[in-house]
């Protein structure tokens, strides 16, 4: 084992060829994960609420789209976007944005079902209490159901985000120079150190995911409130 190859390419692993060239490596992985996470949270929330709509002509089509996306491998979604978006917009589409859109679609579909479970997990009495005071349905959702539901959803959201961090590695397939892509580049260039390189990469992914899980555990404690009996 010779870990000199890691030391030699450390900055490249971390930030790619930035600032002279494009951002890459760990920095790009984090960028992809955080951006897709924020976007998929927003769309997941939206899709989740639509899927629990009392109107069937809203909930059924929403569920159809969600199940369609969930029934397809992520790699396939990335390919879809990669070939579809340029065709749709009539010009080339930046790979990074393509991957973010694909990750967002995929993760939002899963997030929506977390939201759905969270909303449906709130006791009926809570909805009835809000309704009986004259609040409109959306107000009951906004002020009573979601604030309680979202706190219950935090652990599942964290799981999803950790998956998302790991899923960014699939971006290498369309040539986005995130951590995995950078690793294959270095591996191809140096030829002799695949074990060292990929051990290191695995460790970096682990540290990313683990530190995030720890952070969220702390967040969960801060947001928890004593449940009424």
């Amino acid at each position: 084992m010779d870990f000199q190859v890691i030391a030699d390419n450390f900055t490249y692993f971390m930030i790619g060829s930035w600032p002279k060239g494009d951002l890459g490596g760990v920095a790009l992985t984090i960028y992809l994960a955080v951006t897709s996470c924020l976007l998929s949270f927003i769309f997941g929330l939206l899709l989740g609420l639509l899927s629990v709509s009392r109107h069937r002509f809203i909930s059924l089509p929403t569920m159809l789209v969600i199940n369609l996306v969930r029934g397809v491998p992520l790699l396939m979604v990335i390919f879809w976007m990669y070939f579809l978006l340029p065709a749709f917009f009539g010009h080339g589409f930046p790979e990074i944005r393509t991957v973010i859109i694909a990750l967002t679609c995929f993760t939002a579909a899963y997030m929506s079902q977390i939201v759905r479970a969270g909303v449906e997990g709130i006791p009926r009495g809570q909805l009835e209490a809000g309704t009986s005071t004259g609040l409109k349905h959306w107000q009951v959702m906004l002020y009573i159901v979601l604030p309680q539901g979202l706190r219950n959803m935090i652990p599942s959201f964290v799981n999803q985000f950790v998956s998302l961090i790991k899923d960014t590695s699939l971006a290498f397939i369309v040539g986005v120079s995130e951590l995995t892509h950078v690793a294959t580049q270095v591996n191809n260039r140096t030829m002799a150190y695949p074990t060292e390189i990929f051990l290191f990469i695995a460790l970096v992914y682990f540290l990313l995911c683990y530190s995030f899980t720890s952070l969220s555990r702390w967040l969960e404690k801060r947001l928890s409130w004593r449940k009424s009996v």
């Binding site: 809570q126 209490a129 005071t133 004259g134 609040l135 449940k227």
Partner: peptide
């Protein structure tokens, strides 16, 4: 109409994430 009619439940159904004050002032 519901705003004109107060309803008290067997299981109280207070909002656990809100203080007593906010439970009352929400509506």
């Amino acid at each position: 109409l519901r705003a004109e009619v107060g309803f008290v439940f067997q299981q109280f159904n207070l909002y656990p994430h809100l203080s007593v004050m906010n439970n009352i002032t929400l509506a």
